[in-house]
């Protein structure tokens, strides 16, 4: 069974329809790349999954549990919204690291706050915090940033900041990790180091949804590609089919711009 089932998601802002009847499934351990021009609804779709936007219609289910159903009441959908959000991790285009915390503190903050809510926190405070810090260090090491744990975001390059953001998103062990154009704010030299990290996550069978403009990367890393246009899914399937042998004219037009450079 699919780990994520998205059905008939629709969303509009005032008079513009941003998403129209978007449905897809994602298997555990697989990577999905969403491509499409700006304004095609890719980012809004990710924001809906992370409960940063509320869809007008449709359902979102993780591991068979319906987290969101537009037919339910607002109160029902917002009940335990914090827990629901934890099914998803989110890496933003603009990193959004907390500037007043070091790399390690950024990674561990959410985990520390959650630990504080546990009834046994006070008794084992030291051990719990030590464990959280060890976990944070491990994640930073995985990102190749062991030397940078005490640095503040403004002391890091864009690529390093984005890798800290990835570690932060992984800290709460989300079922599905979402990337919103993770390299769009980076210059080409720094793009590579971030893509390398995402690639290694794919190799470890992390379930991921990646909104990206890096076509070659999408083709190499993703198990499944969705091409969106005007809030609709135009084409979806294996990367080789969608990117190398698109069936739809609209997809061909879009990809032509990339191959022409």
């Amino acid at each position: 069974m699919a780990i994520l089932e998205v059905k008939h998601i629709g969303k509009h802002f005032e008079n513009t329809k941003v998403l129209e009847d978007v449905s897809f499934e994602l298997e555990e351990g697989s990577a999905l790349a969403i491509i499409g021009s700006s304004g095609s609804g890719k980012t809004t779709l990710l924001r809906c999954l992370n409960f940063l936007e509320t869809p007008d219609s449709g359902t979102i289910a993780v591991k068979g549990n319906t987290l969101f159903d537009a037919d339910r009441t607002k109160a029902e959908n917002e009940k335990d919204i914090r827990t629901k959000r934890l099914h998803f991790g989110m890496v933003f285009q603009s990193f959004n690291l907390f500037p007043q915390y070091t790399a390690l503190e950024n990674v561990t903050l959410a985990e520390r706050l959650l630990a504080k809510e546990r009834p046994d926190f006070k008794q084992n405070k030291k051990a719990v915090l030590e464990k959280i810090n060890a976990h944070g260090r491990e994640l930073l090491a995985q990102m190749g940033l062991s030397e940078r744990e005490g640095h503040y975001p403004h002391q890091l390059s864009g690529g390093q900041q984005q890798r800290v953001a990835i570690a932060r998103a992984l800290a709460l062990k989300p079922d599905i990790l979402c990337f919103d154009e993770p390299t769009s704010a980076l210059d080409p030299e720094l793009t590579g180091e971030v893509l390398k990290v995402i690639r290694s996550l794919a190799e470890r069978k992390t379930t991921m949804i990646i909104v990206t403009h890096e076509m070659a990367f999408a083709r190499d890393v993703a198990d499944q590609v969705i091409f969106m246009d005007g809030g609709l899914i135009v084409e979806q399937g294996a990367p080789d089919n969608v990117i190398n042998h698109p069936r739809e004219e609209r997809t061909r037009q879009f990809l032509a711009r990339y191959t022409q450079g």
Binding site: N50, F51, L52, R82, R168
Partner: peptide, 13 residues
């Protein structure tokens, strides 16, 4: 920036 609040939200704060 709104992104700061959003980053907190997606971390379940």
């Amino acid at each position: 920036p709104a992104g700061q609040r959003e980053a907190g939200q997606v971390l379940g704060m």
